[in-house]
Design a protein around this nucleic acid. Sequence first.
DNA 1: AACGCATAAGTAAGAC
DNA 2: GTCTTACTTATGCGTT
Lengths: 81, 81, 81, 81
Amino acid sequence: MSETLDTSAAEQLRSIIDRIERLEEEKAALAADIKEIYAEAKGNGFDTKALRKIIALRKKEPHVREEEEQILTLYRMAIGV
Amino acid sequence: MSETLDTSAAEQLRSIIDRIERLEEEKAALAADIKEIYAEAKGNGFDTKALRKIIALRKKEPHVREEEEQILTLYRMAIGV
Amino acid sequence: MSETLDTSAAEQLRSIIDRIERLEEEKAALAADIKEIYAEAKGNGFDTKALRKIIALRKKEPHVREEEEQILTLYRMAIGV
Amino acid sequence: MSETLDTSAAEQLRSIIDRIERLEEEKAALAADIKEIYAEAKGNGFDTKALRKIIALRKKEPHVREEEEQILTLYRMAIGV
DNA sequence: AACGCATAAGTAAGAC
DNA sequence: GTCTTACTTATGCGTT
């Protein structure tokens, strides 16, 4: 490997970093918004852990979710939990 | 801050690192054993994802688990998922 | 705990979930964009692991980063790594 | 899929879960021991964040670590961080 | 070999 | 202030 990046590569590198940082910033802003909603929900008496589970459940395709729940139920019954 | 650690501190540092590394090694060995059991279970037709959920469920205190499931069910019914 | 959520609470719940899901969607879109930039960078011969480290370094306040690096160097010299 | 596990499968399932739980317990005990060493080190004035970095560095093969550090340095110089 | 999944680690925040 | 809990990132693993 060479010891330094040539000018073109250095410019490319800067560009990549800039673009990523810009997007990361927007992503962080959204994460903050989401966090705020959870905080507000908690303030209104909702259980955030359950809220997160609901969100996760709704992300799955219905038939996938049902299949998974069926298997889990099967195992739970088998060992009595 | 000084620029180097004195001999005593350096020795202490080595000792700390050694002890942690030794324990990390044992921990990694156990993780490998666990992984092997999952692989074997999968080979026998078990669903590892469901297995992991079962293990997680059993980690919780029964009344805590029941409480959580009750809330989740409440929310699921309210929004129909 | 009551067995069902009253209408008002159910509506609130739906609203919370909707808002979070909308934001999560935007967040996922940004994450996908970021991933794409990394993939493109990789295609142009950049090392993505190093890129991520650079991004992480730049997130820190300069004096914090320097302080951390100084301590790390101190420890590295003490144990010779 | 059948609605219940036959007796043999249920026994197998119990055995799998038992074995995993036993190993998980030992693993958790080791994790607790490790945490304790970090706490003790912190009490003696060591920086745990740096300690963790040292441990991570030592996990890598020397030539891999050197290669990674070389690339990172290259990028850092190119963008001046 | 790339892709997503899953674990683990590290970091940051909140509760006691 | 500490100590846990949760969120984020990173790395490794298995799958396709």
